[in-house]
Structure formats: C-alpha cells, structure tokens
C-alpha cells in the first residue's frame, strides 16, 4: 500500500512537470497564467497524498492556505489581463 502511494506521488509530481512545460513554452501570456492556476491546484493534491503517507495532519493546513493564496493570485493576474487597475 505504501509503495503504491509513493508511485501515485511521483505521478502527481510528473504532472506538475507537464504544467511547467506549458508555463515555459506557452505561445501567449494567458496560456502561462492558465498553467500557473492548474499548477496551484495540483500542489494541493501533492500535499494531501503526503499527509496520508506520513500520517501528519498539519500538511493539510498548508494545502488549505495554498488554495486561498493561489485563488487571490489568479484573480489579480486576471484583473491585470483585462487591463484594469487593482481597485476597480
């Protein structure tokens, strides 16, 4: 069971690598922002798998904080894309 969890963890990290490819090679700026958003969600999955593997619950706290921070970051980037000031 533990070996299988480790394999799943490595698959998830490889998927983040695919997102990194899109961040580096993306033809337009919005492509890169979409990939950054998806990368943030994948990291939450990595945190959840690590917390099952080690049995420590504080790693899930890191995941929850990561959800909220990545949400605020994505909203800011989207506002910048549509050409507005941040307080509009």
């Amino acid at each position: 069971m533990n070996t299988w969890l480790e394999i799943l963890l490595y698959i998830q990290i490889a998927l983040s690598g695919l997102c990194l490819y899109r961040i580096i090679m993306g033809p337009t700026i919005p492509d890169r922002m979409v990939a950054i958003d998806i990368f943030g969600i994948l990291v939450v999955g990595i945190c959840a798998i690590i917390s099952v593997q080690t049995g420590k619950s504080f790693i899930l706290d890191i995941g929850i904080a990561w959800i909220i921070l990545s949400f605020i970051g994505t909203l800011t980037l989207a506002k910048y894309l549509s050409g507005k000031k941040l307080n509009q």
Partner: peptide, 13 residues
Amino acid sequence: VAAHALVRGTYHF
C-alpha cells in the same frame, strides 16, 4: 471562480 476570471481576462486581452 478563478476560471471565470481568467477566461474573461483572456478575451479582453
């Protein structure tokens, strides 16, 4: 909600 904001920003970009 992040997906809505991103797709709208992309169209306006």
